[in-house]
Nucleic acid binder design. Structure first.
Lengths: 344, 344
DNA sequence: TTGTACGCGTTATCAC
DNA sequence: GTGATAACGCGTACAA
């Protein structure tokens, strides 16, 4: 590793003046030619374009942003980059913007409010056209405030201000969907093992499950929702308790794929076959866990990438002048694999 | 969800002129006062600062960037956002920059060279001060070229141009480290089940393993490195083959935590205790797999977040004038859990 | 100590 | 059809 002197500078940066000079026209004309304005002779345009090509010129976006109202940049303010839920949202948003002319500023506040203010300031000073705020968990978070100079869309974690626009997962619908699938498989003694009851998502999924069961005149196997933690170990423990209390259970809906893995583990140990004796469902469609399970897990996908894309689209619309408000729920998607099947 | 008219604009944006006017000075004086220049009377400065505070003014970074050589932005060009390896690197880099005045442009090329050029152009047009290129897999990738106006640091996947600076994982050292730990546990019949042989990382880890064994005059249990795929299923299949050929194996070093999970699964099925009979090691320290395994997996952490931070630091140094070249290897870290232990 | 004037690179508005 | 010229918001020589 040797020092290579000055930092990779390949000659001075090319500006519109250089192009104009080479083409033998004024900067104004060069600008018009490059921007496809009609009032410029064809031959002149060709000359300018050739010059630009030859010098490999591209306009300084800073200068452009300084003039117009648009900078072609948006801020993506996440609270928890390492969390697996932020990533697909971020991908969806990046994808939606990236295909256009918009670039994305990424900031991770690490769940710290101070850091969030700091990043917000930095983003505004860079004159972003809008902001997407991605929460770490699906619960209400503080609004950035109403007096921002740019539109804001909250994704995954809704803002606590109803005047803001938030896009969230439809967890109640997801609970209904999962339960409906198990019912379709002919299961009637369905249990629900899920995570931390402090999570709105856990409550909502449980509610959807209970609602759907009630429509069939059914109650939960095991007599309760098994709230606990979002971990494989809890999945194991809860399953053992459940089997003791309701040995005749014929389906288990887990609140996450992690929990479902723990459920599968104990069922294997007990010599209970999946899915013939007990059907198992996960939640999240976290490929590494769901697809590689034995048997592969039927699960619910939150369509987070879609959520990110939608957030980007809403923001685009807002930048052009119309921002909605309230909370918009995104439907989940059933992903069937081998851990569920109709009863023989 | 109702439309709220114009897009969240809270009055016109405050400029330095507004501050100067309110403070009753010229823009030049206001600028000096805010930037801590000495040639300004204390009383005047106080007045300007108060005005800026009152109007909650912050300078337009675009205008600042247009003047100086620095924009305070860097580009983070990833090839594979969804890949779990990019994320920690990205976090480390974002963290290193975020604490300073630098903001990060995130671009995901989705492994597509065309899209990469497109993003590169967009980043350069925004006058980023430098670039970090994060690869999808730990193998050589094409250089962005030597004639870029800003310094570039390659992370995880090294550039194919030795004149570039690349930061990569020391996989050979990691193989040695893992094997050394198993030897320290008193194991002598060590097997190695790993992933796709087309990955340089797989080859390097195997090499480190073989080197370390050779130093002890030992050979690999099973007589070969078991190359295959980076999947739990392969871990299961390879373990079955291994047990048939070498039933007396006393340690298995897996090339990834996924593979290690498959290994554990089969060992359980066969009634072989971990770690008393066979010690198992994973690789990646992917918490969801390693920490939740039964028993929790001893594994190797690639220190990717550190790698990201270092990439950011190297880039900073480069922006200030000195860019190195060549490939810099980052050491891995042993994470001991319960799947390895000294032989009774 | 403060203010004036210029330039950063680009686009838009006017003359020509 | 083309070219000066004035912005955009800020920093900084230079003059006062």
């Amino acid at each position: 590793m040797k020092a290579s002197g000055s930092a990779g500078n390949a000659g001075r940066i090319v500006t519109l003046r250089d192009v104009a000079k080479l083409a033998g026209v004024s900067v104004a004309t060069a600008s018009k030619a490059l921007n496809g304005q009609p009032q410029v002779r064809a031959e002149t345009r060709t000359r300018v374009l050739a010059a630009a090509e030859q010098l490999s010129f591209f306009p300084n976006a800073l200068a452009q942003g300084l003039i117009g109202q648009r900078t072609g940049t948006v801020g993506l303010l996440t609270s928890d980059l390492e969390g697996r839920f932020s990533i697909p949202i971020l991908m969806g948003a990046e994808d939606a913007f990236g295909s256009g002319q918009t670039s994305v500023f990424l900031c991770d506040a690490r769940g710290d409010a101070i850091r969030e203010r700091h990043h917000l300031r930095a983003l505004l000073s860079r004159r972003v056209d809008g902001l997407i705020v991605v929460g770490a968990r699906p619960d209400t978070r503080p609004s950035l405030g109403r007096d921002l100079p740019v539109p804001v869309v909250y994704a995954y974690a809704p803002s606590d201000d109803p005047a803001d626009l938030s896009l969230v997962t439809d967890n109640v619908g997801a609970g209904r969907m999962a339960t409906g699938h198990l019912l379709d498989c002919g299961r009637r003694r369905i249990a629900h093992i899920t995570g931390d009851p402090a999570y709105g998502a856990a409550q909502d999924r449980a509610k959807g499950t209970l609602d759907r069961l009630a429509e069939e005149g059914l109650e939960l196997a095991g007599g309760q929702v098994w709230f606990g933690m979002w971990s494989e170990a809890w999945g194991r423990g809860a399953t053992r308790m459940l089997l003791r209390r309701s040995p005749d259970v014929d389906a288990i809906f887990a609140g996450s794929d992690e929990i479902a893995r723990g459920v599968l583990d104990v069922l294997h140990q007990e010599g209970i076959d999946v899915p013939s004796q007990v059907a198992v469902m996960g939640f999240d469609n976290w490929a590494i866990l769901a697809a590689n399970a034995r048997p592969p897990l039927t699960t619910i996908d939150m369509n987070l990438e879609l959520l990110g894309r939608l957030a980007a689209q809403r923001l685009f619309a807002a930048i052009d002048g119309t921002l909605g408000s309230g909370v918009e729920s995104i439907a989940c998607r059933l992903v069937t694999r081998d851990s569920t099947a109709p009863v023989g």
